[in-house]
Computed example of a mutant assay.
Amino acid sequence: MEHDTLAPLRDLIARQWQQHGRETPINGLHLTSVSAPTGPIHAVCRPSLCVVVQGAKVSMLGDRAFRYDAGKCLIASMEVPIQAEITRATPDRPYLAFSLELDPATISDLLLEIGGAADIQPGPALAVHAIGAELLDPLCRLLRLCDRPRDIAVLSPLIRREITWHLLNGPMGPALRQVGLAGSHMARIGRSIARIRESFAEQLNIRQLAEVAGMSPATFHRHFKEATAMTPVQYQKQLRLQEARRLLLADAADVARVGYAIGYESPSQFSREYRRMFGAPPGRDGLAIRKGFAPQTEA
């Protein structure tokens, strides 16, 4: 796509950012404007569409890198912990992007219109594609709704449904269809992920997670890693450590107490694994976050 076709989106994001910042009046619509490259940003990526209209970014899912710049989007079809980094941004040309959470119920409903069983191919939870021209108009209309709060409750669901329809009928369709099909591998792995998130501080039981997904332990392990580029143990560890960072950001809690709260029995193991993920031991990193010197986790 020619980048000048992105000018309306760029202008809308820049204007809405000045007015609202990251959180817009539309639930699940988040803006980003960054004037310099960042260090690692650790986040849990929910089912969503992330559109970049200026600058560039890379997101790591396990050891897989997903790179996207102006005119490209990242589709996340399930909740996964990622490490992201904005690689191109300047004060004159800041990184501009927005993310829109996707509703599995809407996807399921629309699948009835197009036949949900076609083109179902198991794959990773993230995918990068070019934004189709048919998406530009509804995306602009959704952003403009931020200026008309009275219209949001009525019109936002309609426009989001239109956006989801175009996504399902485009190159991103196969990945999204798995979100809406209860029996698909992606949806079944998603149920096990929800169980991990609900009880991430508890000891992991692979057999129970496999039962939640309706798979044998060996099949579950294979499909889990195919979708997330991580084993269930690695996935749980990332969730635990991101929660630890959130707790350290919220208050200057005792490091050992934070480790116990997220499921670590050994303070030294907690400190060692925290440092491996975030580049500094928890006490020092927590202090840096609170002083604003370290990159913080984004939702």
Rank of each mutant, 00 (worst) to 15 (best):
G173C: 03
A187I: 03
H166F: 15
R144N: 05
P157R: 00
L176Y: 01
A153K: 11
R188A: 02
M186A: 15
L181Y: 00
S192N: 03
G170I: 00
P138C: 08
D109F: 11
A187W: 00
L181P: 01
A130I: 06
F98I: 01
L126D: 04
E198F: 03
L110V: 10
I163V: 09
S199E: 09
H166C: 10
L142H: 04
A97N: 05
N169T: 13
A194Q: 14
A175I: 06
F200K: 03
L126M: 07
I159L: 13
T164D: 01
G115T: 00
G170M: 01
V179W: 02
I107Q: 04
A127P: 11
A182K: 09
C146V: 04
A133H: 08
P138G: 00
R150Q: 14
H166S: 06
L100A: 06
D119W: 11
L168C: 09
P122F: 03
D151C: 09
P171V: 02
L112E: 15
V128D: 06
A118R: 14
L102C: 07
R207Y: 11
L136P: 05
E162P: 03
F200E: 02
M172W: 07
W165C: 01
V179S: 02
G116C: 01
T106Y: 03
L110R: 13
H185K: 14
I114V: 14
S108V: 07
D137I: 11
C146Q: 07
D137H: 06
P124K: 05
Q208M: 13
G183E: 13
A194I: 04
L136C: 02
A130K: 11
